[in-house]
């Protein structure tokens, strides 16, 4: 985290997609609660979508698309709407990134998951329904994401904009992350604490 998550998001992602064509994929699916007793953030990829990828006896579910995931070539996950709903566990983006994903494309993200992802350099890309339908109908499809420009190029379909995060760009240029930024607000924070004598628990 001290090597700011925001910098990891920089640049271009040129990759093929991996499709999970389901609505409302919750963070309990992304990483089941039994794996949350860890005190680390690394190495959670092996637990990612654990119940989807492995049978109760530990053997692989060979037929599942995630078992054919080639991390070096498929860094973009495509999923149905409301991706990342449910629990606030940041282990979800940690696990997805450890599995090799750098971006997720969906028509809608749950708020907390989106916040957690951005802070870790996992890029949530919101696309309209027509683009989603094309991507979901074309598994393992080549795409190119220009993060700084906010452009998604879908081979054979076109180029589409997604909202830029100007604050991420600012932090990147300054070589800081969000916590550095907050700590730089010390004068304002101290002034707030003195002026408004905020409610104490």
């Amino acid at each position: 985290m001290s090597t700011t998550g925001d910098t990891k998001a920089a640049g271009i992602i040129q990759s093929r997609t991996l499709n999970l064509p389901f609505d409302n994929i919750d963070t309990d699916q992304i990483i089941p609660a039994q794996f949350l007793t860890t005190t680390e953030r690394e190495g959670l990829g092996r637990f990612c979508f654990f119940h989807w990828r492995f049978n109760p006896d530990g053997s692989s579910k060979a037929e599942h698309p995630l078992m054919h995931h080639v991390p070096a070539e498929q860094q973009v996950l495509v999923a149905g709407p409301n991706f990342g709903c449910g629990s606030s566990r940041e282990h979800a983006p940690w696990a997805l990134m450890d599995l090799g994903f750098r971006a997720v494309i969906s028509s809608r993200f749950a708020d907390i998951f989106r916040n957690n992802s951005i802070k870790n350099g996992l890029l949530p890309v919101v696309m309209e329904q027509t683009v989603m339908e094309f991507l979901l109908a074309h598994p393992n499809h080549p795409v190119r994401i220009d993060i700084a420009a906010g452009k998604l190029e879908v081979s054979g379909l076109g180029t589409f904009s997604f909202p830029l995060d100007p604050f991420a760009a600012y932090c990147l240029a300054q070589g800081i992350d969000q916590l550095d930024f907050l700590l730089r607000q010390e004068t304002d924070i101290a002034r707030y604490e003195n002026a408004s004598s905020p409610q104490s628990p």
């Binding site: 985290m1 998550g5 953030r41 606030s88 566990r89 940041e90 907390i112 916040n115 957690n116 802070k119 870790n120 604050f167 969000q178 916590l179 930024f181 907050l182 700590l183 607000q185 924070i189 604490e193």
Partner: peptide, 18 residues
């Protein structure tokens, strides 16, 4: 409201959130 672990660190260190 609920927050992620990175934000837990933000609040611990600065008592603030973005």
């Amino acid at each position: 409201f609920g927050i992620g672990t990175t934000e837990v660190g933000h609040v611990l260190a600065s008592q603030c959130l973005l």
